[in-house]
Structures are given as C-alpha cells and as structure tokens.
C-alpha cells in the first residue's frame, strides 16, 4: 500500500530542527550536522540492518548499546530514543567514537513518528 502523499521535503532536515519538532533533548553529537531526509521506527535491530538508505534517522524505544552499534554498522548517524528511555554512558561512548547524534524525547515512538512525518521526514517503505 502506498503511503499518503505528503509535501515533499526540498531540503534535508537538520538535527536541531528534528529535535525541535520532536520535542527532543540532544544527548551527544550536537556539534555534528548530519542531514536527515527519512526515518525508520523500529525496536527490531535485525530489521534496521536490512536498510539500504542513507541520511536516515532511527526512532526507537530500544535503549541499549546494540542499538547504537546497529546504527553504526548501518551508517545511521542519528538515533532518537522515545519515551525518555535511559541512555547509558556506554551508548554515548560508542556514539561519540563514531560521530553519531543521540537524542531523547518524552513522546512515544508513534507520536514522534507522526510529528516528524508531518514535518516532511520521509518514510523508507
């Protein structure tokens, strides 16, 4: 099934803009500037590892070091953790070592995805 057409984004979105739209707090990598065009929301890292896109944001409720490792392997440079899941020092360490941005929002994965979709972030499938 095709997703409903939305106003297509002409410019990639900055992480500052993503944080503003999603009501998120930047945990590390605020100085980096990865351009984000699309997002994938999943707690299943096996599924994230099948993505072939770039300029992708991962929205997840799974807060562990393997979520950060999975993003590292998948060339995903920004992760947004929903429901203020606790991000550990280990996770921040792996993220900093690989120039990745970590953010957290109090909103659910569903609501966060809705906000970003409405703002023009594209789905992958």
């Amino acid at each position: 099934m095709q997703h409903q057409p939305i106003p297509s984004m002409t410019q990639p979105m900055s992480i500052q803009e993503i944080a503003r739209v999603a009501g998120a707090q930047m945990l590390c990598g605020a100085h980096l500037n990865p351009a984000i065009v699309r997002a994938f929301a999943s707690d299943l890292m096996s599924d994230v590892l099948t993505l072939e896109t770039d300029q992708t944001l991962l929205i997840t409720g799974l807060a562990n070091v393997q979520a950060v490792r999975t993003a590292e392997m998948s060339d995903i440079s920004c992760i947004l953790f929903a429901r203020n899941k606790k991000v550990t020092e280990d996770m921040v360490h792996v993220a900093l070592e690989n120039d990745m941005v970590l953010m957290q929002t109090p909103h659910s994965v569903f609501y966060t995805s809705g906000l970003l979709y409405q703002a023009g972030i594209q789905p992958i499938f």
């Binding site: 299943l44 096996s46 599924d47 590892l49 799974l62 562990n64 393997q66 979520a67 999975t70």
Partner: peptide, 15 residues
C-alpha cells in the same frame, strides 16, 4: 530483548 533473534541474520549475511 536485545533487538535480535527474528530469524533474519543468515539471510541478511547472504544478501
């Protein structure tokens, strides 16, 4: 619980 074990790993290695 770690986000794996969905039975996708070996086929993803192949891909």
């Amino acid at each position: 619980e770690m986000g794996f074990g969905a039975g996708m790993g070996l086929s993803n290695i192949k891909n």
